[in-house]
């Protein structure tokens, strides 16, 4: 238990430091990446590429193991289910991401220096997270669209 929490803290610390160094806590870099028709900034592609590389190796190692090093269950194979929640949710997320230039990781990593605006964003994000399960129930209940 202690070890799990210790490695969780380390992972969070490394994640946050990576977000700082890569410039992903700077909303102008994120919006610059999304602004294809403006002064386009490709930095985010380097960040995503750099992050995917070690993680792809980690997934390969994980498939050869039955449990994590600390004895936890490993994640089950990814679901193939493409549903309305996934696509609508991702579109809504992308809209908010573009508007402010913040996604959940950097929003939390910048809490210590992001000022009142950063705090307000985080409070609104948490409120949205509270509302999401209600919305998801409605989505699941609605009849499937005929395409």
């Amino acid at each position: 238990m202690m070890q799990r929490n210790l490695f969780a803290t380390l992972a969070g610390a490394l994640f946050g430091t990576g977000l700082l160094i890569s410039g992903m806590v700077d909303t102008t870099k994120v919006q610059g990446w999304l602004d294809v028709f403006g002064a386009w900034d490709p930095t985010l592609a380097f960040v995503l590429g750099g992050a995917i590389l070690p993680m792809a190796i980690a997934w390969r190692i994980a498939t050869r193991r039955s449990r994590s090093v600390l004895g936890q269950d490993l994640p089950s194979p990814p679901s193939q289910r493409i549903d309305r929640s996934l696509l609508l949710g991702s579109v809504l997320f992308g809209m908010g991401w573009g508007l402010a230039g913040l996604c959940p990781g950097p929003a939390m990593a910048s809490l210590g220096f992001g000022g009142w605006g950063g705090l307000l964003f985080l409070v609104a994000m948490l409120a949205g997270m509270v509302a999401a399960p209600v919305l998801r129930t409605r989505l699941d209940r609605a009849p499937a669209p005929t395409v």
Binding site: S22, G23, A58
Partner: peptide, 29 residues
């Protein structure tokens, strides 16, 4: 900035790799 992005990105990926292999968890903020 691209080099910093790559370096910071590698740290993010290492954090996710550690969380997966040590804790068995997907690192999703």
């Amino acid at each position: 900035d691209w080099i910093m992005g790559l370096g910071g990105g590698l740290m993010i990926g290492l954090a996710a790799a550690m969380f997966l292999l040590m804790n068995g968890r997907v690192m999703g903020a």
